[in-house]
Simulated scan of single mutants.
Amino acid sequence: MKKLTFTLPYPLLLPNRRGLPANRAAAAAAIKKERVMMAMEIAALLAGIRPVEPIQYARVWVFRHSTGQEPDRDNFNAACKGLLDVLQPSTAKRSYGLGVIENDKPGRCDLRIHHVHAKHSTQQMTRVIITEIDAAEIDAVRAAVAKEAEQAASLIGVHGAPLGLDKDASAKALAAA
């Protein structure tokens, strides 16, 4: 099983801390520049150990060491988006991809994010550990994703409009619940 570890000398930037320009095109350009810089840094850190073929099924551990308080889940996930984009293969829209993992879909990538409180700003960093998942773990991840999807679908049917129904049918479904 393949295992790659690298450390970025900074905590991943949270979306609410970016300070992006209000202009949409300028913000997109700033995000792309940030990801290109991250790709160059990760490529240098993985020099000589980067896999020839992308890891088909991966578990990606991200340990964000920061002096601030623990971010909420949506900010944490959004902060990892750029990292996951960099780790995937290059495409026409994502020219900076390194091809470390094949895909970041839940059935292919098991993302585990953790906050580690750093006592001093010099201890801030992001440690990333990528491991190849074997067949048994792949099935467990897929089963967990399917179970979560099933639970979400049942919640939608009870607490909101069931998918694919019009307003009248939604009102009847809610009244029946």
Rank of each mutant, 00 (worst) to 15 (best):
L4Y: 02
L4W: 01
T7W: 04
L8S: 11
P9C: 01
Y10P: 03
P11R: 04
P11N: 09
P11V: 06
L12K: 03
L14Y: 04
P15N: 09
P15H: 03
R18I: 09
R18V: 07
R18C: 12
R18A: 14
G19I: 02
A22P: 09
A25W: 05
A25N: 13
A26W: 01
A27F: 08
A30M: 10
I31W: 00
I31E: 11
K32H: 11
E34I: 01
E34H: 08
R35Y: 13
V36P: 02
M38S: 11
M38I: 10
A39T: 01
E41D: 12
E41P: 02
I42E: 01
A43V: 04
L46Y: 00
A47Y: 05
P54S: 10
P54C: 10
Q56N: 08
Y57G: 05
R59M: 12
V62N: 05
H65N: 07
H65C: 10
H65Q: 05
H65R: 06
S66K: 01
T67E: 02
G68S: 13
Q69N: 15
E70Q: 14
P71I: 03
D72N: 11
R73I: 13
F76Q: 12
F76K: 05
A79V: 04
A79Y: 01
C80V: 09
K81D: 14
K81P: 01
L83E: 04
L84Q: 03
D85I: 05
V86Q: 03
L87K: 00
Q88R: 11
P89G: 14
T91S: 15
T91M: 09
R94M: 04
S95F: 08
L98A: 05
G99F: 07
P106S: 07
R108C: 11
C109I: 00
D110M: 06
L111G: 06
L111P: 10
L111A: 10
R112A: 14
I113A: 14
H115N: 11
A118F: 04
A118N: 07
A118K: 05
K119Y: 07
H120W: 13
S121P: 13
Q123H: 10
Q123R: 08
M125I: 02
M125K: 15
I130R: 00
I130V: 15
I133R: 13
A136W: 03
I138G: 02
A140P: 00
R142N: 07
R142H: 00
A146M: 14
E150A: 15
Q151F: 05
Q151A: 14
A152M: 06
A161Q: 06
A161P: 11
G164I: 05
G164Y: 07
L165A: 08
D168P: 03
A169M: 12
A169H: 11
S170R: 03
K172A: 15
A173F: 06
A175W: 01
A176Q: 06
